[in-house]
Nucleic acid binder design. Structure first.
Lengths: 241, 241
DNA sequence: TCAAAAGTGTTATAGGTACACCCATGT
DNA sequence: ACATGGGTGTACCTATAACACTTTTGA
């Protein structure tokens, strides 16, 4: 996360030669999870406006680039994660949301495994860092609003969509799964009741394998079956965590 | 809904003098309800591209206009309804969604009382008409996708948000309310159970008034209490229809 | 007195919550 | 043997669904 001496690439510094009138951008709320911690990836701006402030990573949408692709690109540039699909949440389009001109921005979010951010990514800004969602600093533009909307979206979607598969190993224990939900939703689940619910979800398949080298009774491992999940969804059953 | 000889105002005809590269627009899915019928307001395009095809009403966003304001303006120009807030659903930004250039469009919807469309509105297009949601014609651009997304949004939101207040009189019967839900969600509710649910919603207040001149037992009238509803919502109770 | 819709009550079942207790493993 | 979490069972409560029945009006 060291500062870089390379020329900064700034997200919102559009050719300011009098031509900048309007533009669209994507802003990405990248949530990182690891062992009962939920964080969000923020950059520290290296250029005006809001120089030095923390902000969401984002970029202008290229002329021949789909909106979704632009969001995925930002994620990829920061985390090297490919094939991730960022989820669209809401578009922010107040006239005065950007001091230099009209910028309409589309907010996206994703939940990924917490990881070290490669130095490459630091060309984006002065600094780039994971921040606990419990302690969000003051943010540039209307990024605080954007972040909050995306946090709401994450909390509501994770109950229905298998977003959590991104942050757990292929084979996981039910306690690990329960911890993801407890962390994201900031609430406790009863162990027994949680397991009863999982039992009703046939796409969560119990394996014939257990943990090893743990100093307590080893836990049975489970895996997520994508095909069964899709069938499940087709059938119209709406089971939520 | 007669054709107009006035110069057509086309939603997507931007100064095509070689400068048109990108623009943002709003597209509005205006649902109209009246007596167990759910319709949607469509215009017939008077200009290329897609001339003659049906399409959603929409317009480019003015340089100094908020996104939400633009959507409300489109609704107002068509229906004379003010103080309506269109609800944002999703932004559509595929590169090739508009044949003449890059147009990113933000989809909004509203549910309003079905009404005659004023002749004034017809300056927008060749024709403008309510279509049953059960028989949607082929639509221009990706408007079919947009419409479907908005229909999903309506169906999911109406259970939690009092959108239905827009299509019922101030004083209404529970049967009228039930019919709104049955029509929008295309399913039947049990009378007794529906009333039990309403009884639990303290913001639906029973009045000391009844219907008159009906050839059956007169129904008690109810009203929606906005203040109580907001309290309810603050308190975190999540009661849905 | 009849049709039509309002309005109420009963029962069965499913799902959620709280909690207690036993089990398997490493140290 | 004991600490640590894994794993299961039960009893209670509430929400929902299906359905039957009574009530009030105009014609």
């Amino acid at each position: 996360m060291a500062k870089s001496k390379e020329p900064k690439k700034d997200l919102y510094t559009i050719p300011i030669d009098g031509f900048f009138q309007s533009a669209f951008s994507v802003d990405c709320v990248i949530f990182g999870y690891h062992e009962k911690e939920l964080k969000v990836l923020l950059i520290q701006r290296g250029t005006s406006p809001y120089e030095g402030d923390w902000a969401l990573p984002g970029d202008l949408v290229y002329p021949h680039e789909d909106l979704d692709t632009a969001a995925d690109r930002v994620l990829m540039e920061l985390t090297q994660l490919e094939d991730m699909s960022m989820l669209q949440v809401k578009t922010f389009g107040k006239v005065d949301r950007h001091p230099l001109g009209r910028v309409i921005t589309v907010a996206y979010f994703a939940l990924v495994e917490l990881q070290e951010i490669s130095p490459m990514a630091s060309s984006w800004a002065n600094d780039i860092k994971w921040h606990s969602v419990k302690r969000i600093p003051k943010l540039a533009f209307d990024h605080k609003d954007i972040l909050m909307e995306c946090l709401d979206a994450l909390r509501s979607l994770i109950k229905r969509e298998p977003l959590w598969t991104r942050v757990l190993p292929k084979k996981f224990t039910l306690t690990e799964l329960q911890e993801v939900f407890e962390t994201v939703l900031v609430k406790k689940y009863d162990k027994g009741n949680f397991r009863k619910k999982v039992n009703g979800m046939k796409f969560l398949k119990r394996l014939e394998e257990s943990q090893i080298n743990v100093r307590h009774r080893p836990s049975t491992l489970y895996k997520f079956d994508q095909k069964l999940f899709l069938q499940y969804r087709e059938s119209g059953s709406v089971v939520e965590f």
